[in-house]
């Protein structure tokens, strides 16, 4: 299984939506940098993320969430991880796909 990393805001780029079209069930999605704006419990993408949680494990990098003032706004079910958690995820998966 692969780790899919999304680092662009879903409002600016279509990488998150493209990721959703190409990700196999059971894979993991990790939001980092401006990608964390897709991980929020309200807004245009919340429904998509909620549905995605049924098929994928979804993570968000907590330092990037906190930097942007989005602490407490992350959707339930999305796991917050730190940098060492990021390393663990990368090591646990067969490969990493970065949706640049």
């Amino acid at each position: 299984m692969q780790l899919h990393v999304v680092n662009k805001s879903p409002f600016e780029k279509s990488t998150f939506e493209s990721c959703l079209l190409h990700v196999k069930k059971g894979s993991s999605i990790l939001f980092i940098e401006d990608g964390i704006f897709a991980a929020l419990n309200k807004g245009k993408f919340s429904e998509k993320v909620k549905n995605a949680l049924e098929n994928y494990k979804i993570y968000a990098l907590e330092p990037d969430v906190n930097a942007r003032g989005m602490k407490n706004k992350v959707m339930d079910g999305i796991k917050l991880i730190d940098y060492s958690g990021f390393v663990d995820l990368a090591a646990e998966h067969d490969a990493v796909q970065s949706w640049l």
Binding site: P63, A67, K71
Partner: peptide, 23 residues
């Protein structure tokens, strides 16, 4: 506007990303 509204969001804490919090 667009993602620019995030620039003036409250509660930013950038310690862990090693960038200056300029908010």
């Amino acid at each position: 506007f667009d993602d620019g509204v995030y620039q003036i969001a409250k509660g930013m804490d950038t310690k862990a990303i090693g960038q200056k919090n300029f908010s």
